[in-house]
Nucleic acid binder design. Structure first.
Lengths: 233, 233
DNA sequence: ACTCAAATTTGATCTGAGTCAATCGGCTGC
DNA sequence: GCAGCCGATTGACTCAGATCAAATTTGAGT
């Protein structure tokens, strides 16, 4: 289920070194930093951490996609975000995670034990500044998502999601009209505050309008401008 | 509309000194810090800053309540939060505000020009750490609010709002079953992703159930346990 | 106190998205 | 190849909350 790679100078060939939290470190610091983290692999569907668990580690996503979610006591689920390579997870004030995180497909993370990581930050304000930047960026995304959840129609939600996801993939692999959707319809529904049926119907509707094509494992954007028009309302 | 107080050693008698961003500063630093900020008053309904405005200042709320919101092109509004004394506003990465802020009733803020403030932070990591803490706390609140917007019923939204608001007021003035609601029904609706009619009906329903009493400028919690039960679902 | 405008409440009706219920289609394992 | 399963789609119907439309209350200004 979970496999841990032997330690080594893995930062050297780390795909996210430039984008992630580590981008704030110079060569010497990176060498020290390297000893704090270890690469851990999670298989598809594995839970990386759960809400209310005591935080023992921070995570830097290296490969794969994770769903970040909160559950209500009766089982209703809200996905609060998807984590992609370069995202940093685990910061909190309470000492406990405030959401759960599952691997969607195979995931590789760089895992840091909380205490040594916190100590490392102490006298490296540029790392703290980088973490702060990431937090502020997430906060801005969270506010955008509140608007979507509170004030957008189903069609607008789906269109906005497709464009936003495309944008995030573009930052990793370059812009493309073929959009991989590794998450299930249920995941999309729980992210958008909809049901699986509504998501499915909206996809079909977009396909019938000739705006997208539903392909295996994703969609193809046939008419980006129309989708943008639908998203903007 | 906006009045600026003459400078002075106002940190000494600042009501939020212990709770706000300044709590991370020692006496000497506080004296220097004092020269960076100035007290500014806003009258009821005044806009403190607007989304997409270039950020020229940061704000520390001293007195009053603000609504923080985003607008869609067609005028739909989502309130992303209410700011109370001790809240720190204005952090962003883009150099532009990512939401608008209006005064609800009279508001006093401590306003800091962006550049000198940013310079002041540079060599004071404990202030940066404090700002980071506030950002992480907000992020956690934002995620909770996503769950509310995406997955809760109207009754649950209203009940959760009343308890959450009571909690925030409790942190300022001590716990009370009399809850002041300075914001309009429209503000509450835009915060909860509902219409004004639904909010009004839900309030009346709660009153008829004998769970709350609608009073001038707020409500009185007659049966907190029942409200908690409604909120939890 | 009186007027007017704005905010809130209440009622009647409508509808977008949810719910319930079959299929359908694509993999997995035999 | 085919049986069984799980995710996705589609259809029929329902309902929570929106919309439209009046009252009614509140409050600011005279």
């Amino acid at each position: 289920m979970v496999t841990i790679e032997p330690n080594g100078h893995f930062c050297d060939d780390c795909a996210v070194r430039g984008a992630a939290v580590c981008s704030s470190l110079d060569a010497v610091e990176l060498r020290q930093f390297e000893h704090l983290g270890r690469r851990v692999h999670f298989e598809s569907g594995a839970t990386v951490f759960s809400e209310e668990d005591i935080t023992t580690s921070f995570y830097n996503v290296l490969e794969g996609v994770m769903r970040l979610y909160k559950l209500l006591p009766d089982g209703r689920r809200q996905i609060v975000g998807f984590a992609l390579p370069g995202d940093f997870l685990g910061m909190n004030l309470s000492g406990r995670h405030n959401f759960s995180a599952d691997a969607i497909g195979v995931v590789t993370v760089c895992q840091f034990a909380k205490t040594p990581f916190s100590r490392f930050i102490e006298d490296r304000p540029q790392l703290l500044r980088r973490i702060n930047e990431l937090a502020i960026r997430e906060l801005s995304q969270a506010r955008d998502h509140m608007v979507l959840l509170g004030r957008r129609s189903a069609d607008e939600k789906v269109a906005t999601f497709l464009l936003g996801w495309r944008e995030r993939l573009a930052a990793l692999k370059g812009l493309s009209d073929t959009i991989a959707l590794p998450m299930s319809r249920q995941d999309i529904a729980d992210y958008l505050g909809l049901t699986i049926e509504t998501v499915s119907r909206t996809f079909t509707k977009l396909e019938r309008l000739g705006v997208i094509e539903i392909i295996h494992g994703g969609i193809s954007l046939l008419d980006p401008a129309r989708v943008e028009a639908m998203a903007a309302a």
